[in-house]
Amino acid sequence: MKKSRILHVGAILLLGLTGTGRGGEIRSLEDVLALQAKTEELGRKVLPAVVALISEEVGSSGSGVVVGKDGLILTAAHVIDGAEEVEVVFPGGKQAKGKVLGANFSKDIGMVRIVDEGDWPVVEIGESKPLQAGDWVVAMGHSEGYDPARTPPLRFGRVVSDGPGNFLTTDCTLIGGDSGGPLFDLEGRVVGINSSIGESLDNNNHAGIDGFREDWDRMLAGEIWGELQLNPLANPERPVLGILMGRELSNGGVPVERVTPDSPAAKAGIRPGDVVVAVDGTRIRGGRNLGMILAKHSAGDEVEVSLLRGREEVKLRVELMRQDQLFEKLER
């Protein structure tokens, strides 16, 4: 029953992209002492709400975090995959029954509700979109399954990259059993949910908490949808422009072969025959590169697309849209 599965390992691609960085700056030992004081306080405050989720049907053990006094738990979709019921175990060993609600596999987020009556310890929910490389964070989870000999280990680190779409990458090292556990900002608010790891110690991926907000009601209502896909280019929720790309040019530019009607590209005035040469000032190095640069954004983000139209360079602002929603629109 204590078999740890969880934390899948991602097929992950590396690319150079542009943007600006800011971070939790350290100028002196006093700054480090202040960070320590925050981390210690945070640990005491949030620890009681970090639960293990054990599914005997599926034979897996993951983690979750309680955010509702009524026992609402946020976790990763793959932790509750195939389960209808889970055992919820609190750090002190207190146990409760949990009912699996909904999940969106495309974002690897899910919900569980404790069915027993109780006054459950909770944590606050923060925001993930504003997080950038250098922001300090703390990850927790029941590594390798629930262990009564210890509390769920605390890992201190920082955001190293705001990952594809809704995901973030930190250097808080994770392992099997941590999946579904919370990532906190230094105020102790949940900003992410542990999702996957790659080979590097700096490659620990978390689903951003803002992804829950968009899907809250559907998950609460018990809906399960989406597709777990770690290749950002295959994620159905990835943001797109709505163009059919032609063969890339030798200088890396990507010609627009067709523009999808009603798509963000169409609305912004991108035309067939235009050549995409840059996004937000970053030169494009081919079609795949363009896809990866866009994947780092979320739907709703506005990007500046630089195009060559004949001899003229044109810059257009485009609001990105989710690929699956664009397709849905087309089918209608």
Partner: peptide, 25 residues
């Protein structure tokens, strides 16, 4: 491969941050 989709700027921010932390301690 280190971090998925890490921008050079992000890499630089985290590297400078590590250096600043080690200078302080």
């Amino acid at each position: 491969q280190q971090v998925p989709l890490q921008k050079p700027e992000e890499k630089q921010v985290t590297r400078q941050q590590s250096e600043a932390l080690f200078d302080a301690i």
